[in-house]
Design a protein around this nucleic acid. Sequence first.
DNA 1: CAGCTGACAGATTTCAAGTTTTGTCATTCG
DNA 2: CGAATGACAAAACTTGAAATCTGTCAGCTG
Lengths: 207, 207
Amino acid sequence: MSTSNAGGPLTPERILEAADETLRRFGPAKTTVVDVARALGVSHGSVYRHFPTKADLRDAVVDRWLQRMHPSLAAVADGEGAAAERVRLVLWTLAETKWTQAREDPEFFTAFAELAEDARTPVVAHVDFVVVQLTKVIAEGVARGEIASADPKTTALAVFDATAKFHNPAARSEWVRPAIDEAFANVWRLLRDGLLPRGVRGVGESG
Amino acid sequence: MSTSNAGGPLTPERILEAADETLRRFGPAKTTVVDVARALGVSHGSVYRHFPTKADLRDAVVDRWLQRMHPSLAAVADGEGAAAERVRLVLWTLAETKWTQAREDPEFFTAFAELAEDARTPVVAHVDFVVVQLTKVIAEGVARGEIASADPKTTALAVFDATAKFHNPAARSEWVRPAIDEAFANVWRLLRDGLLPRGVRGVGESG
DNA sequence: CAGCTGACAGATTTCAAGTTTTGTCATTCG
DNA sequence: CGAATGACAAAACTTGAAATCTGTCAGCTG
């Protein structure tokens, strides 16, 4: 290739950018390391200088995708308002973001979900991040007397698990149902009533 | 084959029995209609006389497998004791049964899960059955003042959805974690507190 | 001499030809 | 006469030889 070195020195970041684009264009099944190298105008040997294996490169791309969601989740977690409502918003944002992606670009989302299935490490990191956000909010809620919980971290994991159907890509086939947001609302009502201290009723919603 | 007609007339039930065995023996990928017919000592044309397509035959086998779980679920739902505890037992039985199958015969359970993925109709029927059991118990609990719910059916679906991670075969990869029953207990505590009427505390458990 | 290349071995994937399977139905069997 | 057969066409799978890809590394290049 004659495009050698166009765009500055070869960095992990540039490789990730190219890998991301290539994966989106060709899909995970058709993307080769040679494709990524070609997009950068380098030989595939150079890519291996920065990522030990193709699997590591793919994991790093998945990591990027997952981390792109983190700022808005953290913003919601650190926002104003009642603790329970912020817990709901974190879970809702997590789910809604994925539903939208899955609806707007189903092909890409399927590709992403397949990729993520193998990418244990970044997924664990993502789950950890979300659970940390939930734990923060719940701990604050407990301190303020807005939430009943003996152990915020355990409770955070429980609400995360209880809403798995709405944010775990493995369940994405059920997201096409238009009533999926109603299902979320109904699960949430139950969880909210479980979170609120005894004697406090949920506000702004009937039932 | 010379074994013609051994075992009485060819009925859907006998075909299902043979299909079940053959699927267990060879797995879903390797089982052909000819295999099933051979096990019965008939031609494959005879099988098509009772099931219009191979997919219908497979669905019927999945249906059998799922329905085998129903008596114990109904027994638990119709049992004695507090409504909330019976809701827990239905969900627990549903989950535990599947965990055990998945652990004791992982190959078969994977095969079953793959089969079930395509078998929309029997799975919907199974989910409906479980939700009906839960609805019964919750409605009774509401009548007795043990459970707070504006609409038992909606609440039943919500507790079913909230425990999807524990009974949906799509999530089976997470069932190997030994702490999975702890995760169930933590989700349940939250749901139970959401089900109980305000002013009532869960009994027999701290936190 | 740091960063990159490209030839290479072994692993994996593709593709086209050959085989098996599904589903139908005219015919046979009891 | 109803139930079962098996020959058949089309679709779906298997197979294995050829092509491509991954990961390494000795050497090149700026």
